[in-house]
Design a protein around this nucleic acid. Structure first.
Length: 940
RNA sequence: ACCGAAGUGGCGGAACUGGUAGACGCGCUGGACUCAAAAUCCAGUGAACCUAAAAUUCGUGAGGGUUCGAGUCCCUCCUUCGGUACCA
């Protein structure tokens, strides 16, 4: 009997929908389990085969937990605000809300095709007002709170103001951007604007000047992604850093807690280390260097204060505010030229090229605080204004970049750490003894750090300080398609927060989205909306992508609540996410922001857990195949050009050709697995590229084949290599697609998509199905008592699959199913007591076919409501064991012996074996290693 | 450049805490069925040596080390992928 997946899938999809099979309720009698998928952004290309990888894994977990008696929350929704929809709108005129909703519908249909058990009544979309109302609400909470260091939690701004009114800054321990000292009387005399500015620097959501990628030609601010080599990726226009007032979230207030509670999470060590490094807590010192012939100091930050005697010059970031005062006249032209150059460089570029450091001398000198020597002040792009104080003391002896810099510009290098006792240590390692360092001489580095810190504080030239690499998070985007801020400004530019009653602040409809003016968001054109409140103007920036995605997992708990982001009893029931499956691309960004928001909501008493995601697993990426043909570069405008294949280009100068991506659909494979286009493929390719009369010559070394350059890379619309799961599901069925994705390899690993192995899984499902049918195509299950052998086959599989689900090792569980079905098939098993538990075991993996079998076997209701089988050990016991016998670590014989044979007998008998005798003859036996039930090794 | 991960047959991968390397599947080869093909079923399939069998040797990105024993642990290096704060 053939399994007709089309019929069976639509039948059970309908049944599940009609019977609310996947409706989630908070059942107080059951333990809860919350399994979460990454929040997808609904792109125009639709879902590709890479997206569902994690979703299938979580679906298997969710279904098996359900069958094990848990109340399971396994929701899905959409991260629906974002740059691509806005860009698409600018190109095509279609409003982002229309394209976004259309994309979401496509995604949902595609997801349903794969048979996920989502309860769609809990779907959330970040771009709907009833959702972003609560994103804005959280922002208001951040705006209206500050971080109290004494109680180590967020507290209302009103309490801060009370404190100012009563005591000024006396006794205040709060995180702020600036350090203030005033008393209550002074506070009362400040103007309203001054008071607001002071309070602003304490808020958890505050305003600060930040730099954006400004592209004059496009009239817009660009994402880092859209900038390559200092020019816009679109059109190649120059881009420079432009300072703008922006909203920023004080995530640094939570840095220590974010670091501390990492230890309690069931995350991989590598992920924790990445977060730890991102937070980047370091102990070091701020040190003031006097500037020669100026009253100001340059404050530097260093993590190696012990090497201060090796500091031979200072380096400032090109954006450093003191620059104006220290540039000498004869250097000013060189310096401004250099500043212009760095403005065009991205942060990444500035740090990457350590082999070709660049920088210029300012013309001024600083005074070394200990040696009192003059040391030159330079500026260089490798010093970033946002890190530390934007200035460093350069120690070429113990810092690689400083050394390269000093060597290039001929600056002094004074060795200060003698590492001769540690021959294999790098120059930056904190190992060795101090030399050339006055009172530090002879000390070990660790002790020298302690001593110099004391000295720095004693002489009042600086301060020991803990510093974080993590910076406060920029929260403003100059975009239309994002959450509007619940903020308005007075004519004095004082920001005023709206109240909770004013929420949501809805995005105004703009028919045609155009770049704003001077880097502002397109919302400035919605003048009616901007000026809707008399005497005030609205904030026109919007929130970034991570605003909506930093708390979405809480909304799933109670998605339609209009009185709260989620009701207390729902929050208390589901608590936190038990298992989160998502890609490493979110390893720091999204996960860090979500943890921060969650801790803030915890401080305010809304959520009951410190951390949102108890266990987290990173899924790998499914990669695509990128195929390319070559187009000869034109030497002049309008010149005739030609396409050429790989073999042809190899014989030419490759510099004359540019690679052009070929849609995967057109690509054929030859017997060696090499990609090529045939005649039809070439025609289709030309048509795909659009008619271009200047391109009509095709060059190839053979007549009818055009060989392609082929590599493994991202699956993306831009490479035309997106594989739609719908096509695979249509051809092989959803169950097969699900199991094949799992069978491809370990969840955590990246792997290329290739359908050529899918026939194996398809064959497995056919064989499984055929177990239930006799030669006359009748459905048949016998009630005979199972044999010992059959029970062993079944329970081996049950044990393995249960273990694998716990370990999220789904590729091996698919193998276990294959082994089981192959074994049952070879003995023609058709017993109910074997095949029905097998079917239940398979149900989370292949929900459609198992539902069908369950039903044919005469069961009522969904198999998903039945209980999951667990292994019975007594069926698995073996009485003999196969020992590999090695001589000197090399395996020489396989020895089958009874399990009960004592070690002493094994030891003597193994030497009697004919196969072993010949290896040990004439040698003295040094020892015999026996690992019970594992192996025997004879050492000569 | 920095942080993190990965590298095993022709291919995807398996190998629990250091203990039989290559499970399972694809592909390939041969056979059965068939007028033929597809599908299905059976057998073989890391490399070298060999007429064959048996045996042996080599073999987990490269080089070194620890160990009775290393794909697994340590050091150095190479390659690929992810992230680096406005892609999501």
């Amino acid at each position: 009997m053939e399994f007709n997946h089309h019929e069976v899938e639509s039948k059970w999809k309908k049944y599940w929908a009609e019977n609310d099979t996947y409706k989630v309720i908070e059942d107080p009698l059951k333990p809860k389990f919350y399994v979460l998928d990454m929040f997808p952004y609904p792109s125009g290309a639709g879902l590709h085969v890479g997206h569902p990888l994690g979703y299938i894994a979580s679906d298997i977990i969710a279904r098996s937990k359900n069958m094990k008696g848990f109340s399971v929350l396994h929701p899905m929704g959409f991260d629906a605000f974002g740059l691509p929809a806005e860009q698409y709108a600018m190109q095509t005129g279609q409003h982002p809300s229309i394209s976004t909703h259309a994309n979401i519908e496509t995604y949902k249909k595609q997801l349903d095709n794969i048979g996920f058990n989502y309860d769609w009544s809990r779907e959330v979309r970040t771009c709907t007002a009833d959702y972003y109302k609560w994103t804005q609400w959280i922002f208001l909470k951040l705006f209206n709170h500050y971080y109290c260091k004494s109680s180590d939690k967020a507290k209302p701004i009103a309490e801060l103001i009370n404190h100012f009114e009563a005591f000024g800054t006396d006794g205040l321990h709060a995180k702020s951007s600036e350090i203030y000292h005033f008393n209550a009387i002074e506070w009362s005399r400040f103007s309203e604007k001054e008071k607001q500015e002071i309070v602003m620097s304490f808020r958890l959501a505050y305003r600060k000047k930040g730099f954006v990628n400004w592209c004059e030609a496009l009239g817009t601010v660009l994402a880092n992604d859209e900038v390559k080599d200092g020019v816009s990726e679109r059109g190649g226009h120059p881009v420079e850093k432009k300072p703008m007032m922006q909203w920023v979230l004080r995530i640094t207030a939570y840095a220590d807690r974010l670091l501390e509670s990492l230890h309690h999470l069931e995350w991989s060590d590598s992920l924790k280390i990445m977060q730890q490094n991102w937070i980047g807590k370091s102990k070091g010192a701020h040190v003031n260097f006097e500037i020669e012939q100026a009253s100001e100091f340059i404050e530097i930050y260093t993590t190696r204060p012990d090497t201060i005697f090796g500091a031979t010059f200072l380096v400032l970031a090109p954006e450093h505010p003191l620059l104006e005062q220290i540039i000498t006249i004869d250097q000013s032209a060189t310096v401004s030229e250099y500043i212009e150059y760095t403005k065009k460089r991205t942060e990444r570029e500035r740090q990457s090229e350590s082999k070709q450091v660049s920088g210029v001398f300012t013309g001024s000198y600083a005074i070394h605080p200990f040696t009192k020597k003059r040391i030159p002040i330079w500026i260089a792009e490798y010093v970033l204004i946002d890190y530390g104080t934007g200035a460093i003391m350069a120690v070429p002896s113990n810092d690689t970049r400083d050394r390269v810099f000093a060597e290039k510009f001929g600056l002094d290098i004074i060795p200060v750490v003698d590492q001769s006792k540690y021959p294999n240590s790098g120059i930056e390692e904190k190992l060795g003894q101090m030399i050339n360092s006055d009172f530090l001489n002879g000390l070990e580095v660790v002790d020298a750090i302690e001593k110099i810190l004391g000295e720095i504080e004693k002489q009042n030239i600086g301060k020991a300080e803990v510093q974080f690499k993590m910076r406060d998070a920029n929260f403003s985007r100059q975009r239309y398609w994002g959450e509007p801020f619940p903020i308005i400004y007075t004519s004095d530019d004082i920001p005023v927060a709206l109240t909770e009653e004013d929420l949501p602040v809805e995005t105004p409809w703009i028919d045609s989205i155009q770049a704003g003016i001077q880097g502002q968001s397109p919302l400035v054109h919605a003048t009616e909306w901007v000026n809707a409140i008399p005497d005030f103007t609205r904030e026109t920036d919007t929130m970034p992508g991570y605003a909506g995605s930093s708390w979405y997992f809480l909304r799933y708990m109670d998605p339609h609540n209009s009185n709260a982001f989620a009701a207390k009893d729902k929050l208390d029931y589901w608590k936190e996410v038990d298992l989160y499956i998502g890609g490493t691309e979110h390893a720091v960004g999204h996960l860090m922001y979500s943890r921060f928001w969650h801790k803030f909501l915890f401080d305010l008493g809304y959520v009951s857990t410190q951390e949102p995601f108890k266990k987290l697993v990173n899924q790998g990426m499914i990669q695509g195949e990128i195929n390319r043909l070559f187009l000869k570069k034109r030497k002049s405008e309008g010149e005739r050009t030609e396409y050429a294949d790989l073999n042809y280009v190899k014989e030419q100068n490759p510099e004359d050709y540019a690679a052009v991506e070929v849609p995967l659909k057109l690509v054929k494979k030859d017997s060696n697995g090499k990609s090529y286009l045939d005649k039809d493929g070439i025609d289709a390719f030309i048509q795909f590229r659009g008619h271009d009369s200047e391109i009509n010559v095709l060059k190839s070394t053979t007549e009818d084949k055009w060989m392609l350059e082929s590599e493994i890379g991202k699956m993306s619309k831009r490479y035309h290599n997106v594989v739609n799961p719908d096509e695979v599901v249509a051809e092989y069925g959803a169950d097969c697609f699900r199991m094949y994705e799992m069978f491809l390899g370990p969840l955590e690993q990246s792997k290329p998509w290739d359908t050529k192995g899918i026939s194996g899984v398809s064959g497995f499902l056919r064989r499984y199905y055929s177990l239930f049918w006799n030669a006359k195509d009748e459905f048949i299950l016998s009630d005979e008592i199972p044999t010992k052998e059959e029970l062993k086959i079944l329970h081996t599989c049950i044990k393995k699959v249960n273990q694998d689900i716990e370990a999220l090792s789904f590729n091996t569980s698919v193998s276990a199913f294959m082994i089981c079905v192959n074994a049952l098939k070879s003995i023609n098993c058709s017993k109910r007591s074997i095949l029905i538990p097998l079917t239940q075991l398979l149900a989370p993996f292949a929900p459609f076919i198992t539902e069908e079998i369950w039903n044919l076997a005469g069961n009522k209701g969904s198999i998903q409501k039945s209980s999951y089988p667990s292994a019975i050990e007594e069926y698995l016991v073996e009485d003999s064991v196969n020992y590999p016998v090695s001589v000197n670590g090399k395996k020489r014989y396989e020895w089958n012996v009874s399990k009960s044979k004592p070690k002493s007998e094994l030891e003597t008998e193994v030497l009697e074996l004919e196969e072993i005798k010949k290896w040990i003859e004439g040698n003295e036996i040094k020892k015999i290693i026996i690992v019970p039930e594992r192996m025997i090794n004879i050492v000569l």
